[in-house]
């Protein structure tokens, strides 16, 4: 239903164009979920903003984003406005800053209903009560008239979800939806999102740096590094048998329960190359412990290791063997 092909995001610089996201491609069907995981600066949020047509100023997207037959990148800003919030919706990390502090939550939930569905104020208000009730705001009818500051962080995120759901979007993009929340609240929000996906058959894209969140929530995942997708596949397979050295090292760097005190966390030496640095080699080569001469010759192609599981590494799939 959603097809993204060779999505590139570039910043037009004074002397040259700086590439922020390179050749991201994926497909997503209704009722399925995709996780995008990566560290800060990997380009995951830029990918999300490109999907929403919300890229700032001088940053442009090229390639193709096809939503149920409609090419989103070809739309004018005005046309995109009728898609955004309607067919694709987004929830952000900070429920404190993404809600308008001087409007009641009822008004904010009703806004897209009036705008996109042409509902009357009264009808939109009724629908807002139903939506708030659905996302688990207790006593929704009375809560319509409260302001965001009167709600807790988890409740604000629920309101954000209600706004995103209001027009029954085909795709919901959630950028770090639970990062600002406590673990028990995070658990409730994740459960809610999961229920909503199976109920409404919308497609869900979750962007997170938390591998645990991705691992529990999604069917398929992309691992991003320095603006590139380095691995793509079914989430359980990627976690069970990471094919790219970066994914593998990243998984080893997470502290797990019950690690013995003598055990050291594995680290990845060095830092991510800066955005826009022109790489003639594999982008991970400088930090990879499996690097060989071939890695420095050219960026590696995607190597298939399993059914629909690919990694941008010439040693893909042999990552685990080589370590052992």
């Amino acid at each position: 239903m959603l097809q993204v092909k060779n999505l590139n995001v570039t910043l037009a610089g004074a002397t040259r164009d700086i590439s922020i996201v390179k050749d991201v491609s994926f497909e997503l069907d209704a009722g399925r979920s995709l996780g995008v995981v990566g560290e800060s600066g990997s380009g995951k949020s830029m990918t999300a903003l490109a999907l929403m047509g919300l890229l700032p100023g001088a940053i442009r997207a090229s390639g193709s984003i096809n939503l149920a037959g409609q090419e989103l990148l070809a739309l004018s800003e005005q046309e995109m406005c009728s898609v955004r919030g309607n067919k694709v919706a987004m929830i952000f990390q900070e429920p404190m800053t993404s809600l308008n502090p001087v409007q009641t939550i009822g008004r904010q939930v009703a806004e897209p209903l009036i705008l996109h569905k042409g509902m009357t104020r009264a009808a939109a208000r009724q629908e807002a009560i139903r939506l708030l009730d659905r996302v688990g705001i207790p006593d929704a009818a009375r809560r319509l008239d409260v302001y965001p500051h009167q709600l807790s962080g988890g409740q604000r995120q629920r309101v954000m979800i209600a706004i995103a759901l209001s027009c029954s979007p085909k795709v919901l993009v959630a950028d770090e939806p639970t990062t600002a929340l406590d673990v028990t609240v995070q658990r409730q929000i994740l459960d809610l999102l999961r229920e909503l996906v199976s109920e409404t058959r919308m497609a869900l894209i979750i962007i997170s740096h938390d591998l645990g969140v991705i691992g529990e929530m999604v069917d398929e995942m992309l691992v991003m590094y320095g603006g590139n997708v380095v691995e793509r596949g079914q989430a359980d397979k990627v976690f069970a048998q990471p094919a790219h050295p970066y994914t593998s090292r990243l998984l080893e760097a997470i502290p797990r329960f019950g690690m013995s005190r003598s055990e050291r966390l594995k680290t990845i030496p060095g830092t991510m190359p800066e955005i826009g640095s022109e790489m003639k080699s594999c982008i991970f080569a400088g930090r990879c412990d499996l690097v060989c001469a071939d890695c420095l010759q050219a960026p590696p192609p995607f190597v298939s290791v399993d059914d629909a599981h690919v990694a941008a590494c010439i040693k893909a799939g042999r990552v685990m063997e080589t370590v052992q």
Binding site: T184, R187, Q188, G212, G215, E216, F239, L251
Partner: peptide
């Protein structure tokens, strides 16, 4: 227990959580 159970784990998809603390702090 509810804190420990709430931590998302890699590779435990669609896990149903046994204990949940219902309302917020």
């Amino acid at each position: 227990q509810s804190l420990v159970d709430a931590v998302p784990h890699v590779g435990v998809k669609n896990r149903r959580v046994a204990r949940q603390a219902p309302t917020a702090l």
